[in-house]
Structure formats: structure tokens, C-alpha cells
Computed example of a mutant assay.
Amino acid sequence: MVDDAEPSRGDLGGRLNQLRAGVLGANDGIVSTAGIVIGMAAATNSVPVILAAGLAGLAAGALSMASGEYVSVSTQRDTERALLEAERAQLARDPEGALQELADEYVAKGLSAPLALQVATELSAGDALGAHADAELHLDPDALTNPWQAAAASIVSFTIGGILPLLAIVLVPVDVRVPVTFVAVVLALVLTGYVSARLGHAPTSRATVRTVVGGALAMGATFALGSAFDVG
């Protein structure tokens, strides 16, 4: 007997993709906020000014990511709905042709023609749209992408990532705030780079180096810009 609570391969893959997206969102929050606060710390020693700039950048970045994710996923969801509607129309217009198309999908996956037709017939008898959507479109009609969930995940992950450099820059003494923040950010980027690579089944060392180098360059650039506008 199959445990209904056990996630399917598709569900597990979707969750891993969401987790990876969350890690990357946190990485964006770390780098973006670190760049702002380090640039401000190079320009001024005023903690309220640095904190205000960091909070403003954190809020703007999180909301920007959320809105972008919402628009992107909404477009994807509209496309999925259009594909399902086209499949539904074909089933109503030409059920026999649709059945043969489904059988051909299983033949292409290695089944014999008689067995493929039998499988297609039995699956279509239970849920024709679901069977076609799974085999031909790789979609689950009852589990389409949710733009609100994507937007919420973006806000949360970006904010969590951005809090680290913000706290590091305002909670340490003035003379060490920049190097301490730099080290804290680099360590955080090592973690996010490693985790994202593991979730994406990519080489961890290469992904981690890319992540750290990108973040270090961003912090170096903003520190140089801030130093050019030193206001004390």
C-alpha cells in the first residue's frame, strides 16, 4: 500500500526547487544589503544613517524581488492554464485522437504499442485530463504554480539574508565594522553557495567560489564608491 503522505517525485522536485530558490533569494539579500551598508560605512560613521540606508535597501530589495517573482510566476501559471485548456478542448473535440497521442507517449517511453494503448485507456478512464497533462505537458492540473507563494518566499528569504550584514555593520565598533561585516558576509556566501550547489547537483567548490567572488566584488565596489563621498 502506498502511503498518501509520502511525497511524489514531482512534489519532491518542486520542493527542492523552492528551497534552492529560497537559498538564492537569501544570497541576493546578503549581497545587496551588504553592498549598501558597507558603502555607507565607508562614507559615514553615523549608525542611524547606515541603519536607515540598510533598512531602506532591504525593504526595497525584498519588495522588488517579490513583485518580480509574482509577475514571473503569474505568467507561468497563465501559460500552464492555457496549455491545459487546449488539452481539454482536444479531449472534447477528438477523444480517440487524444487517446492515441497518449498511447504514443508511452510507446516513446518504451512500452509496446498494445500495452501503451491499454495503459492510456485505463488512465484516461479515471482522469483523462490529468493523464494527458502528466504525460504530455508534465503538469498536475491540481498543483499549478502559485504566484503568491513565490512572492512570499522571495520576501522572506531576501529579508533573512539581508538581516545578517545589517546587524554586523551596526553592532560592532566603528574601527572594525567593515572587516567584520566583510568576513560575516563571506562566510554566509560560502554557506549559500554550497547549499545551492548541492540542491542543484552542481560542483560545490565552483559554485561557492563564484558566489563569494561576486559578493566580494560587490562589497569592494560599494566601499570604493562610499569612500569617494566621505562625510565623516
Rank of each mutant, 00 (worst) to 15 (best):
H132F: 10
I160P: 10
L191Y: 13
A131M: 02
A92K: 00
R177M: 10
L166H: 11
A103R: 01
T159Y: 04
F223V: 10
A103F: 03
E101P: 00
L99C: 03
D104K: 02
A89P: 00
A151D: 08
L217R: 09
G193T: 11
R177A: 12
G232V: 15
G97R: 05
R198I: 09
L139N: 00
A116H: 02
A202K: 15
A133K: 01
L91H: 02
A131P: 02
G130I: 01
S227K: 12
H138V: 06
L117Y: 08
A168R: 08
A188D: 11
A133D: 00
L199P: 05
S157E: 00
V180D: 13
P165N: 11
P141R: 02
E101V: 02
R93D: 05
S227C: 07
G162A: 10
E101W: 01
K109V: 03
V183H: 13
S205Y: 11
G220K: 06
L187Y: 06
V119M: 04
T121L: 07
A125F: 04
V156D: 06
A188F: 06
L199C: 10
L191S: 14
R206G: 12
A168N: 12
R93G: 02
L167F: 13
V119Y: 01
V212S: 13
A120V: 00
Q149T: 10
V180I: 14
P147Y: 04
D94C: 10
V185I: 07
A143C: 05
F223E: 12
L225E: 06
I160V: 15
A108R: 10
D104V: 03
A218D: 09
Q90T: 04
D175F: 07
H201V: 10
L199V: 14
G232F: 14
Q149D: 04
F223I: 09
L191W: 10
L144A: 05
V176H: 05
L111W: 05
V209S: 09
A113F: 07
R210M: 14
Y106M: 00
S157T: 07
A133S: 04
M219Q: 08
L99G: 03
R88I: 00
E101G: 01
L115I: 13
V180F: 06
G193D: 12
P141L: 00
A135F: 04
L164H: 08
